[in-house]
Design a protein around this nucleic acid. Structure first.
Lengths: 236, 236
DNA sequence: CGTGTCAGCTTTGTATGCAAGATAGAAATG
DNA sequence: CATTTCTATCTTGCATACAAAGCTGACACG
Protein backbone atom coordinates (compact mmCIF):
# COMPACT_ATOMS: atom_id res chain seq x y z
CA UNK A 1 0.00 0.00 0.00
CA UNK A 2 2.97 2.30 0.44
CA UNK A 3 3.57 3.52 -3.08
CA UNK A 4 4.54 6.85 -1.68
CA UNK A 5 8.00 6.71 -3.15
CA UNK A 6 6.77 5.74 -6.62
CA UNK A 7 6.80 8.96 -8.62
CA UNK A 8 3.60 8.34 -10.52
CA UNK A 9 1.30 5.85 -8.89
CA UNK A 10 -1.15 5.25 -11.68
CA UNK A 11 -4.82 4.60 -11.02
CA UNK A 12 -4.21 0.94 -11.61
CA UNK A 13 -1.63 0.95 -8.85
CA UNK A 14 -4.00 2.64 -6.48
CA UNK A 15 -6.73 0.14 -7.24
CA UNK A 16 -4.35 -2.77 -6.99
CA UNK A 17 -3.08 -1.53 -3.64
CA UNK A 18 -6.54 -1.50 -2.19
CA UNK A 19 -7.57 -4.81 -3.69
CA UNK A 20 -4.39 -6.45 -2.49
CA UNK A 21 -4.98 -4.95 0.92
CA UNK A 22 -8.33 -6.67 0.95
CA UNK A 23 -7.05 -9.96 -0.46
CA UNK A 24 -4.50 -10.09 2.32
CA UNK A 25 -7.14 -9.22 4.91
CA UNK A 26 -5.40 -6.05 6.00
CA UNK A 27 -8.36 -3.88 5.06
CA UNK A 28 -11.55 -4.72 6.86
CA UNK A 29 -15.06 -4.41 5.46
CA UNK A 30 -16.59 -1.04 6.20
CA UNK A 31 -13.24 0.70 6.24
CA UNK A 32 -13.63 4.31 5.35
CA UNK A 33 -11.57 5.40 2.37
CA UNK A 34 -11.45 9.16 2.53
CA UNK A 35 -10.57 10.82 -0.74
CA UNK A 36 -8.20 13.41 0.66
CA UNK A 37 -6.75 10.84 3.02
CA UNK A 38 -5.83 8.55 0.15
CA UNK A 39 -4.77 11.54 -1.91
CA UNK A 40 -2.10 12.52 0.60
CA UNK A 41 -1.17 8.89 1.14
CA UNK A 42 -0.51 8.29 -2.56
CA UNK A 43 0.60 11.86 -3.11
CA UNK A 44 -1.81 12.56 -5.94
CA UNK A 45 -4.80 14.81 -6.25
CA UNK A 46 -8.29 13.80 -5.24
CA UNK A 47 -9.30 13.54 -8.88
CA UNK A 48 -7.28 10.43 -9.47
CA UNK A 49 -8.38 8.90 -6.21
CA UNK A 50 -11.97 9.46 -7.21
CA UNK A 51 -11.39 7.79 -10.54
CA UNK A 52 -9.93 4.77 -8.82
CA UNK A 53 -12.85 4.65 -6.43
CA UNK A 54 -15.31 4.75 -9.29
CA UNK A 55 -13.53 1.84 -10.91
CA UNK A 56 -13.52 -0.12 -7.68
CA UNK A 57 -17.19 0.65 -7.27
CA UNK A 58 -18.06 -0.94 -10.60
CA UNK A 59 -16.02 -3.93 -9.51
CA UNK A 60 -18.15 -4.28 -6.41
CA UNK A 61 -15.31 -3.58 -3.98
CA UNK A 62 -16.32 -0.22 -2.53
CA UNK A 63 -19.51 1.80 -2.23
CA UNK A 64 -20.10 5.47 -1.92
CA UNK A 65 -22.49 6.96 0.56
CA UNK A 66 -23.44 10.34 -0.88
CA UNK A 67 -21.54 13.21 0.72
CA UNK A 68 -20.33 10.86 3.42
CA UNK A 69 -17.55 8.98 1.79
CA UNK A 70 -16.27 5.78 0.26
CA UNK A 71 -16.38 2.55 2.20
CA UNK A 72 -15.16 -0.94 1.59
CA UNK A 73 -18.30 -2.97 1.01
CA UNK A 74 -19.93 -4.84 3.87
CA UNK A 75 -21.87 -7.52 2.04
CA UNK A 76 -25.21 -8.36 3.59
CA UNK A 77 -26.18 -11.96 4.18
CA UNK A 78 -28.16 -11.97 0.95
CA UNK A 79 -25.35 -10.44 -1.04
CA UNK A 80 -22.95 -12.93 0.45
CA UNK A 81 -25.06 -15.80 -0.72
CA UNK A 82 -25.18 -14.28 -4.19
CA UNK A 83 -21.42 -14.01 -4.24
CA UNK A 84 -21.01 -17.65 -3.33
CA UNK A 85 -23.63 -18.64 -5.85
CA UNK A 86 -21.86 -16.66 -8.56
CA UNK A 87 -18.61 -18.32 -7.66
CA UNK A 88 -20.19 -21.76 -7.81
CA UNK A 89 -21.63 -20.99 -11.22
CA UNK A 90 -18.41 -19.68 -12.66
CA UNK A 91 -16.03 -22.16 -11.11
CA UNK A 92 -18.23 -25.07 -12.02
CA UNK A 93 -18.45 -23.96 -15.62
CA UNK A 94 -14.77 -23.23 -15.63
CA UNK A 95 -13.70 -26.67 -14.50
CA UNK A 96 -16.24 -28.48 -16.62
CA UNK A 97 -15.10 -26.69 -19.76
CA UNK A 98 -11.49 -27.51 -19.15
CA UNK A 99 -10.09 -30.03 -21.59
CA UNK A 100 -6.49 -30.47 -20.57
CA UNK A 101 -4.13 -29.36 -17.84
CA UNK A 102 -0.46 -29.20 -18.59
CA UNK A 103 2.18 -30.68 -16.33
CA UNK A 104 3.41 -27.17 -15.74
CA UNK A 105 0.04 -26.04 -14.47
CA UNK A 106 -0.22 -29.01 -12.17
CA UNK A 107 3.20 -28.09 -10.87
CA UNK A 108 2.02 -24.58 -10.07
CA UNK A 109 -0.99 -25.90 -8.21
CA UNK A 110 1.10 -28.44 -6.32
CA UNK A 111 3.45 -25.72 -5.18
CA UNK A 112 0.51 -23.63 -4.13
CA UNK A 113 -0.93 -26.44 -2.04
CA UNK A 114 2.47 -26.87 -0.46
CA UNK A 115 2.41 -23.23 0.56
CA UNK A 116 -1.02 -23.65 2.03
CA UNK A 117 0.20 -26.56 4.09
CA UNK A 118 3.12 -24.48 5.27
CA UNK A 119 0.90 -21.61 6.30
CA UNK A 120 -1.37 -23.97 8.20
CA UNK A 121 1.61 -25.42 10.02
CA UNK A 122 2.85 -21.97 10.92
CA UNK A 123 -0.63 -20.83 11.85
CA UNK A 124 -0.21 -17.72 9.74
CA UNK A 125 -3.83 -16.88 9.39
CA UNK A 126 -3.48 -13.74 7.31
CA UNK A 127 -1.27 -15.44 4.77
CA UNK A 128 -3.65 -18.37 4.75
CA UNK A 129 -6.63 -16.21 3.91
CA UNK A 130 -4.72 -14.83 0.98
CA UNK A 131 -3.63 -18.26 -0.22
CA UNK A 132 -7.08 -19.76 0.11
CA UNK A 133 -8.47 -17.15 -2.21
CA UNK A 134 -5.55 -17.36 -4.58
CA UNK A 135 -6.06 -21.05 -5.21
CA UNK A 136 -9.25 -20.38 -7.10
CA UNK A 137 -7.65 -17.60 -9.09
CA UNK A 138 -4.81 -19.95 -10.01
CA UNK A 139 -7.33 -22.37 -11.47
CA UNK A 140 -8.90 -19.61 -13.51
CA UNK A 141 -5.46 -18.67 -14.76
CA UNK A 142 -4.92 -22.23 -15.89
CA UNK A 143 -8.02 -21.98 -18.00
CA UNK A 144 -6.32 -18.97 -19.54
CA UNK A 145 -9.32 -16.70 -19.74
CA UNK A 146 -8.53 -13.23 -18.46
CA UNK A 147 -12.17 -12.21 -18.32
CA UNK A 148 -12.96 -15.02 -15.95
CA UNK A 149 -9.80 -14.39 -13.96
CA UNK A 150 -10.74 -10.79 -13.37
CA UNK A 151 -14.29 -11.58 -12.45
CA UNK A 152 -13.20 -14.27 -10.08
CA UNK A 153 -10.55 -12.07 -8.52
CA UNK A 154 -13.13 -9.47 -7.62
CA UNK A 155 -15.48 -12.12 -6.30
CA UNK A 156 -12.66 -13.54 -4.23
CA UNK A 157 -11.97 -10.13 -2.75
CA UNK A 158 -15.60 -9.93 -1.76
CA UNK A 159 -15.45 -13.44 -0.37
CA UNK A 160 -12.63 -12.43 1.91
CA UNK A 161 -14.61 -9.45 3.12
CA UNK A 162 -17.53 -11.77 3.74
CA UNK A 163 -15.42 -14.15 5.75
CA UNK A 164 -14.12 -11.25 7.83
CA UNK A 165 -17.71 -10.39 8.64
CA UNK A 166 -19.33 -13.73 9.17
CA UNK A 167 -16.68 -16.35 9.70
CA UNK A 168 -16.68 -17.53 13.27
CA UNK A 169 -13.81 -19.94 12.95
CA UNK A 170 -11.58 -20.70 10.05
CA UNK A 171 -11.69 -24.34 9.06
CA UNK A 172 -8.39 -24.00 7.31
CA UNK A 173 -7.58 -27.66 7.22
CA UNK A 174 -10.98 -28.46 5.80
CA UNK A 175 -10.59 -25.87 3.07
CA UNK A 176 -7.14 -27.09 2.28
CA UNK A 177 -8.43 -30.62 1.97
CA UNK A 178 -11.07 -29.40 -0.43
CA UNK A 179 -8.41 -27.82 -2.57
CA UNK A 180 -6.38 -30.99 -2.51
CA UNK A 181 -9.33 -33.05 -3.68
CA UNK A 182 -9.91 -30.68 -6.58
CA UNK A 183 -6.24 -30.92 -7.44
CA UNK A 184 -6.35 -34.68 -7.46
CA UNK A 185 -9.33 -34.72 -9.75
CA UNK A 186 -7.52 -32.36 -12.11
CA UNK A 187 -4.47 -34.57 -11.98
CA UNK A 188 -6.55 -37.50 -13.10
CA UNK A 189 -8.11 -35.39 -15.83
CA UNK A 190 -11.55 -35.88 -14.34
CA UNK A 191 -12.89 -32.38 -14.84
CA UNK A 192 -16.40 -33.47 -14.15
CA UNK A 193 -15.42 -34.56 -10.69
CA UNK A 194 -13.32 -31.45 -10.18
CA UNK A 195 -16.30 -29.28 -10.98
CA UNK A 196 -18.53 -31.16 -8.57
CA UNK A 197 -15.87 -30.97 -5.90
CA UNK A 198 -15.54 -27.23 -6.39
CA UNK A 199 -19.24 -26.79 -5.76
CA UNK A 200 -19.09 -28.97 -2.69
CA UNK A 201 -16.05 -27.05 -1.45
CA UNK A 202 -17.74 -23.68 -1.87
CA UNK A 203 -20.83 -25.02 -0.17
CA UNK A 204 -18.74 -26.14 2.76
CA UNK A 205 -17.10 -22.78 3.09
CA UNK A 206 -20.43 -21.02 2.84
CA UNK A 207 -22.09 -23.18 5.45
CA UNK A 208 -19.10 -22.49 7.67
CA UNK A 209 -20.28 -18.89 7.81
CA UNK A 210 -22.80 -17.64 10.25
CA UNK A 211 -24.97 -15.62 7.94
CA UNK A 212 -27.69 -15.14 10.51
CA UNK A 213 -25.39 -13.27 12.79
CA UNK A 214 -25.39 -9.54 12.15
CA UNK A 215 -21.93 -8.10 12.61
CA UNK A 216 -23.32 -4.61 13.03
CA UNK A 217 -26.69 -4.72 14.74
CA UNK A 218 -26.69 -0.95 14.87
CA UNK A 219 -27.12 -0.69 11.12
CA UNK A 220 -30.57 -2.17 11.54
CA UNK A 221 -31.30 0.21 14.33
CA UNK A 222 -30.31 3.16 12.27
CA UNK A 223 -32.40 2.13 9.35
CA UNK A 224 -35.58 0.76 10.81
CA UNK A 225 -37.05 1.11 14.24
CA UNK A 226 -35.99 -0.63 17.40
CA UNK A 227 -34.85 -4.22 17.13
CA UNK A 228 -33.21 -6.19 19.89
CA UNK A 229 -29.45 -6.52 19.42
CA UNK A 230 -28.45 -10.10 18.80
CA UNK A 231 -25.20 -10.67 20.62
CA UNK A 232 -21.73 -9.37 21.27
CA UNK A 233 -19.12 -8.11 18.86
CA UNK A 234 -17.54 -10.51 16.38
CA UNK A 235 -14.11 -9.15 17.14
CA UNK A 236 -11.33 -11.59 16.31
CA UNK B 1 -30.51 8.06 -25.50
CA UNK B 2 -31.56 11.69 -25.37
CA UNK B 3 -31.44 12.45 -21.67
CA UNK B 4 -30.91 16.05 -22.53
CA UNK B 5 -34.22 17.08 -21.05
CA UNK B 6 -33.64 15.13 -17.84
CA UNK B 7 -32.33 17.72 -15.42
CA UNK B 8 -29.71 15.50 -13.87
CA UNK B 9 -28.59 12.62 -16.02
CA UNK B 10 -26.65 10.63 -13.49
CA UNK B 11 -23.51 8.72 -14.43
CA UNK B 12 -25.53 5.56 -14.43
CA UNK B 13 -27.81 7.05 -17.05
CA UNK B 14 -24.88 8.02 -19.20
CA UNK B 15 -23.40 4.57 -18.95
CA UNK B 16 -26.73 2.93 -19.61
CA UNK B 17 -27.28 5.11 -22.65
CA UNK B 18 -24.08 3.97 -24.22
CA UNK B 19 -24.50 0.34 -23.30
CA UNK B 20 -28.02 0.31 -24.61
CA UNK B 21 -26.79 1.98 -27.77
CA UNK B 22 -24.41 -0.92 -28.19
CA UNK B 23 -26.94 -3.58 -27.27
CA UNK B 24 -29.25 -2.25 -29.92
CA UNK B 25 -26.41 -2.12 -32.44
CA UNK B 26 -26.69 1.61 -32.96
CA UNK B 27 -23.15 2.27 -31.80
CA UNK B 28 -20.50 0.52 -33.81
CA UNK B 29 -17.19 -0.81 -32.50
CA UNK B 30 -14.43 1.74 -32.76
CA UNK B 31 -16.80 4.65 -32.40
CA UNK B 32 -15.01 7.60 -30.95
CA UNK B 33 -16.59 8.94 -27.78
CA UNK B 34 -15.26 12.44 -27.38
CA UNK B 35 -15.49 13.78 -23.86
CA UNK B 36 -16.59 17.29 -24.70
CA UNK B 37 -18.89 15.96 -27.37
CA UNK B 38 -20.69 13.73 -24.88
CA UNK B 39 -20.55 16.50 -22.31
CA UNK B 40 -22.55 18.85 -24.49
CA UNK B 41 -24.82 16.01 -25.60
CA UNK B 42 -25.75 15.13 -22.03
CA UNK B 43 -25.38 18.69 -20.84
CA UNK B 44 -22.98 17.92 -18.04
CA UNK B 45 -19.35 18.73 -17.49
CA UNK B 46 -16.53 16.63 -18.83
CA UNK B 47 -15.79 15.41 -15.32
CA UNK B 48 -18.88 13.28 -15.14
CA UNK B 49 -18.39 11.99 -18.66
CA UNK B 50 -14.89 10.93 -17.75
CA UNK B 51 -16.15 9.13 -14.68
CA UNK B 52 -18.66 7.24 -16.77
CA UNK B 53 -15.98 6.36 -19.28
CA UNK B 54 -13.76 5.00 -16.54
CA UNK B 55 -16.59 2.84 -15.33
CA UNK B 56 -17.28 1.59 -18.81
CA UNK B 57 -13.62 0.89 -19.24
CA UNK B 58 -13.56 -1.42 -16.24
CA UNK B 59 -16.58 -3.13 -17.71
CA UNK B 60 -14.67 -3.81 -20.90
CA UNK B 61 -16.91 -1.67 -23.10
CA UNK B 62 -14.60 1.20 -24.03
CA UNK B 63 -10.87 1.82 -24.11
CA UNK B 64 -8.86 4.95 -23.85
CA UNK B 65 -5.99 5.75 -26.12
CA UNK B 66 -3.84 8.22 -24.19
CA UNK B 67 -4.35 11.83 -25.22
CA UNK B 68 -6.31 10.58 -28.14
CA UNK B 69 -9.69 9.71 -26.83
CA UNK B 70 -12.17 7.07 -25.79
CA UNK B 71 -13.29 4.42 -28.23
CA UNK B 72 -15.83 1.66 -28.14
CA UNK B 73 -13.78 -1.52 -28.02
CA UNK B 74 -12.98 -3.40 -31.20
CA UNK B 75 -12.32 -6.90 -29.91
CA UNK B 76 -9.57 -8.75 -31.70
CA UNK B 77 -10.10 -12.30 -32.87
CA UNK B 78 -8.38 -13.61 -29.76
CA UNK B 79 -10.41 -11.42 -27.44
CA UNK B 80 -13.56 -12.47 -29.22
CA UNK B 81 -12.81 -16.10 -28.58
CA UNK B 82 -12.19 -15.31 -24.93
CA UNK B 83 -15.54 -13.58 -24.71
CA UNK B 84 -17.34 -16.55 -26.16
CA UNK B 85 -15.43 -18.88 -23.91
CA UNK B 86 -16.34 -16.82 -20.87
CA UNK B 87 -19.97 -16.88 -21.90
CA UNK B 88 -19.88 -20.64 -22.35
CA UNK B 89 -18.36 -21.04 -18.92
CA UNK B 90 -20.83 -18.80 -17.18
CA UNK B 91 -23.96 -19.86 -19.00
CA UNK B 92 -23.14 -23.50 -18.64
CA UNK B 93 -22.62 -23.15 -14.91
CA UNK B 94 -25.70 -21.02 -14.67
CA UNK B 95 -28.01 -23.54 -16.28
CA UNK B 96 -26.47 -26.51 -14.55
CA UNK B 97 -26.91 -24.91 -11.15
CA UNK B 98 -30.53 -24.13 -11.77
CA UNK B 99 -32.89 -26.24 -9.72
CA UNK B 100 -36.34 -25.06 -10.67
CA UNK B 101 -37.95 -22.70 -13.10
CA UNK B 102 -41.30 -21.20 -12.21
CA UNK B 103 -44.23 -21.13 -14.60
CA UNK B 104 -43.93 -17.38 -14.58
CA UNK B 105 -40.35 -17.49 -15.76
CA UNK B 106 -41.21 -19.93 -18.52
CA UNK B 107 -43.95 -17.54 -19.54
CA UNK B 108 -41.42 -14.71 -19.82
CA UNK B 109 -39.13 -16.81 -21.95
CA UNK B 110 -41.99 -17.99 -24.14
CA UNK B 111 -43.03 -14.41 -24.77
CA UNK B 112 -39.46 -13.52 -25.57
CA UNK B 113 -39.20 -16.31 -28.13
CA UNK B 114 -42.42 -15.11 -29.65
CA UNK B 115 -40.90 -11.69 -30.07
CA UNK B 116 -37.85 -13.20 -31.70
CA UNK B 117 -40.08 -15.02 -34.16
CA UNK B 118 -41.89 -11.81 -34.93
CA UNK B 119 -38.67 -9.92 -35.54
CA UNK B 120 -37.47 -12.66 -37.87
CA UNK B 121 -40.72 -12.51 -39.80
CA UNK B 122 -40.44 -8.76 -40.11
CA UNK B 123 -36.76 -8.96 -40.94
CA UNK B 124 -35.99 -6.32 -38.34
CA UNK B 125 -32.33 -7.07 -37.99
CA UNK B 126 -31.49 -4.40 -35.41
CA UNK B 127 -34.29 -5.48 -33.13
CA UNK B 128 -33.26 -9.06 -33.64
CA UNK B 129 -29.69 -8.42 -32.58
CA UNK B 130 -31.00 -6.87 -29.42
CA UNK B 131 -33.41 -9.72 -28.72
CA UNK B 132 -30.84 -12.41 -29.40
CA UNK B 133 -28.60 -10.94 -26.75
CA UNK B 134 -31.43 -10.34 -24.35
CA UNK B 135 -32.46 -13.98 -24.33
CA UNK B 136 -29.34 -14.93 -22.46
CA UNK B 137 -29.75 -12.09 -20.02
CA UNK B 138 -33.32 -13.23 -19.37
CA UNK B 139 -32.03 -16.63 -18.40
CA UNK B 140 -29.56 -15.09 -16.00
CA UNK B 141 -32.39 -13.06 -14.52
CA UNK B 142 -34.34 -16.23 -13.94
CA UNK B 143 -31.45 -17.56 -11.91
CA UNK B 144 -31.87 -14.39 -9.87
CA UNK B 145 -28.22 -13.59 -9.42
CA UNK B 146 -27.51 -9.94 -10.13
CA UNK B 147 -23.77 -10.45 -10.21
CA UNK B 148 -24.08 -12.94 -13.02
CA UNK B 149 -26.66 -10.80 -14.78
CA UNK B 150 -24.35 -7.83 -14.83
CA UNK B 151 -21.36 -9.81 -15.98
CA UNK B 152 -23.36 -11.44 -18.71
CA UNK B 153 -24.85 -8.15 -19.81
CA UNK B 154 -21.42 -6.69 -20.36
CA UNK B 155 -20.28 -9.81 -22.17
CA UNK B 156 -23.37 -9.64 -24.33
CA UNK B 157 -22.58 -6.06 -25.23
CA UNK B 158 -19.15 -7.17 -26.29
CA UNK B 159 -20.64 -10.06 -28.22
CA UNK B 160 -22.74 -7.66 -30.21
CA UNK B 161 -19.70 -5.58 -31.00
CA UNK B 162 -17.95 -8.74 -32.10
CA UNK B 163 -20.78 -9.72 -34.36
CA UNK B 164 -20.73 -6.26 -35.91
CA UNK B 165 -17.08 -6.79 -36.71
CA UNK B 166 -16.94 -10.37 -37.82
CA UNK B 167 -20.40 -11.60 -38.66
CA UNK B 168 -20.76 -12.11 -42.36
CA UNK B 169 -24.37 -13.23 -42.32
CA UNK B 170 -26.79 -13.49 -39.52
CA UNK B 171 -28.18 -16.98 -39.13
CA UNK B 172 -31.09 -15.63 -37.22
CA UNK B 173 -33.31 -18.64 -37.68
CA UNK B 174 -30.55 -20.94 -36.49
CA UNK B 175 -29.96 -18.86 -33.38
CA UNK B 176 -33.64 -18.70 -32.67
CA UNK B 177 -33.88 -22.47 -32.99
CA UNK B 178 -31.05 -22.78 -30.50
CA UNK B 179 -32.92 -20.62 -28.05
CA UNK B 180 -36.05 -22.67 -28.56
CA UNK B 181 -34.21 -25.89 -27.81
CA UNK B 182 -32.82 -24.43 -24.60
CA UNK B 183 -36.30 -23.31 -23.66
CA UNK B 184 -37.71 -26.77 -24.25
CA UNK B 185 -35.06 -28.34 -22.08
CA UNK B 186 -35.86 -25.87 -19.32
CA UNK B 187 -39.53 -26.60 -19.71
CA UNK B 188 -38.84 -30.27 -19.12
CA UNK B 189 -36.67 -29.42 -16.16
CA UNK B 190 -33.64 -30.99 -17.80
CA UNK B 191 -31.03 -28.44 -16.79
CA UNK B 192 -28.21 -30.70 -17.77
CA UNK B 193 -29.45 -30.78 -21.32
CA UNK B 194 -30.12 -27.05 -21.27
CA UNK B 195 -26.54 -26.39 -20.25
CA UNK B 196 -25.16 -28.60 -22.99
CA UNK B 197 -27.45 -26.96 -25.51
CA UNK B 198 -26.28 -23.53 -24.43
CA UNK B 199 -22.69 -24.49 -25.11
CA UNK B 200 -23.59 -25.92 -28.47
CA UNK B 201 -25.58 -22.79 -29.28
CA UNK B 202 -22.71 -20.49 -28.41
CA UNK B 203 -20.35 -22.66 -30.40
CA UNK B 204 -22.63 -22.40 -33.40
CA UNK B 205 -22.79 -18.65 -33.14
CA UNK B 206 -19.05 -18.42 -32.74
CA UNK B 207 -18.31 -20.62 -35.73
CA UNK B 208 -20.74 -18.47 -37.68
CA UNK B 209 -18.24 -15.67 -37.30
CA UNK B 210 -15.38 -15.17 -39.65
CA UNK B 211 -12.64 -14.54 -37.17
CA UNK B 212 -9.95 -14.87 -39.77
CA UNK B 213 -11.44 -12.09 -41.81
CA UNK B 214 -10.11 -8.76 -40.77
CA UNK B 215 -12.75 -6.09 -41.10
CA UNK B 216 -9.91 -3.62 -41.11
CA UNK B 217 -6.86 -5.19 -42.70
CA UNK B 218 -4.76 -2.40 -41.33
CA UNK B 219 -5.83 -3.01 -37.76
CA UNK B 220 -2.73 -5.08 -37.06
CA UNK B 221 -0.59 -2.30 -38.27
CA UNK B 222 -2.59 0.29 -36.49
CA UNK B 223 -2.35 -1.51 -33.21
CA UNK B 224 1.31 -2.21 -33.41
CA UNK B 225 1.98 1.40 -34.27
CA UNK B 226 -0.64 2.64 -31.80
CA UNK B 227 -2.53 4.58 -34.40
CA UNK B 228 -6.12 5.60 -33.87
CA UNK B 229 -8.69 2.92 -34.63
CA UNK B 230 -11.14 3.28 -37.45
CA UNK B 231 -13.48 5.94 -36.24
CA UNK B 232 -16.96 5.98 -37.54
CA UNK B 233 -19.30 8.78 -36.65
CA UNK B 234 -20.04 9.37 -33.02
CA UNK B 235 -23.61 8.87 -31.95
CA UNK B 236 -26.10 10.05 -34.57
C1' DC C 1 6.81 14.99 -56.68
C1' DG C 2 7.84 13.45 -52.24
C1' DT C 3 9.38 14.58 -47.60
C1' DG C 4 10.41 16.90 -43.41
C1' DT C 5 9.28 20.67 -40.18
C1' DC C 6 6.67 23.70 -37.61
C1' DA C 7 2.72 26.42 -36.02
C1' DG C 8 -2.04 26.23 -34.35
C1' DC C 9 -5.85 23.74 -33.02
C1' DT C 10 -8.02 20.05 -30.71
C1' DT C 11 -8.42 16.71 -27.09
C1' DT C 12 -7.27 14.51 -22.97
C1' DG C 13 -4.91 14.53 -18.13
C1' DT C 14 -4.74 16.57 -13.75
C1' DA C 15 -5.31 19.97 -10.25
C1' DT C 16 -7.91 23.25 -7.86
C1' DG C 17 -11.87 25.86 -6.30
C1' DC C 18 -16.36 26.29 -4.65
C1' DA C 19 -20.95 24.75 -3.29
C1' DA C 20 -23.90 21.55 -0.94
C1' DG C 21 -24.78 17.84 2.17
C1' DA C 22 -23.69 15.46 6.45
C1' DT C 23 -21.92 14.97 11.13
C1' DA C 24 -20.79 16.21 15.65
C1' DG C 25 -20.64 18.91 19.44
C1' DA C 26 -22.06 22.93 21.85
C1' DA C 27 -25.66 25.68 23.32
C1' DA C 28 -30.25 26.57 24.35
C1' DT C 29 -34.74 25.24 25.96
C1' DG C 30 -38.45 22.63 28.06
C1' DC D 1 -31.64 16.11 32.94
C1' DA D 2 -33.24 15.09 28.40
C1' DT D 3 -34.05 16.82 23.99
C1' DT D 4 -33.78 19.79 20.29
C1' DT D 5 -31.52 23.21 17.46
C1' DC D 6 -27.92 25.41 15.48
C1' DT D 7 -23.42 26.22 13.96
C1' DA D 8 -18.66 24.82 12.81
C1' DT D 9 -16.26 21.68 10.27
C1' DC D 10 -15.37 18.10 7.26
C1' DT D 11 -16.26 15.51 3.01
C1' DT D 12 -17.89 14.67 -1.39
C1' DG D 13 -19.98 16.40 -6.07
C1' DC D 14 -19.20 18.93 -9.84
C1' DA D 15 -17.33 22.42 -12.83
C1' DT D 16 -13.73 24.94 -14.59
C1' DA D 17 -8.91 26.12 -15.69
C1' DC D 18 -4.67 25.12 -17.33
C1' DA D 19 -0.94 22.10 -18.98
C1' DA D 20 0.67 18.45 -22.01
C1' DA D 21 0.38 15.74 -25.99
C1' DG D 22 -1.47 14.51 -30.43
C1' DC D 23 -3.21 15.76 -35.07
C1' DT D 24 -3.60 18.68 -39.35
C1' DG D 25 -2.22 21.15 -42.83
C1' DA D 26 0.66 24.59 -44.77
C1' DC D 27 5.08 25.52 -46.34
C1' DA D 28 9.77 25.05 -47.43
C1' DC D 29 13.25 22.24 -49.42
C1' DG D 30 15.68 18.49 -51.73
Amino acid sequence: MQDRNAQQPTQINIEASIVSGILSARIRPGTRLGESQLATLFDVSRTRIRESMMRLETRGIVTVSPRRGWFVVEPSAEESMKVYEARRIIEFGLLRNLSTVSEQDLEILARHLQEEKLAIAKGDRQRLTCLMGDFHIRIAEIAGNEIIVETLRDLTARTILISMLYQSDFHAQESHDGHCRIFEALQEGDFNAAAELAIRHLDEVETGLDLTHRPDPLSDLRNSLSLPPLSSEPKE
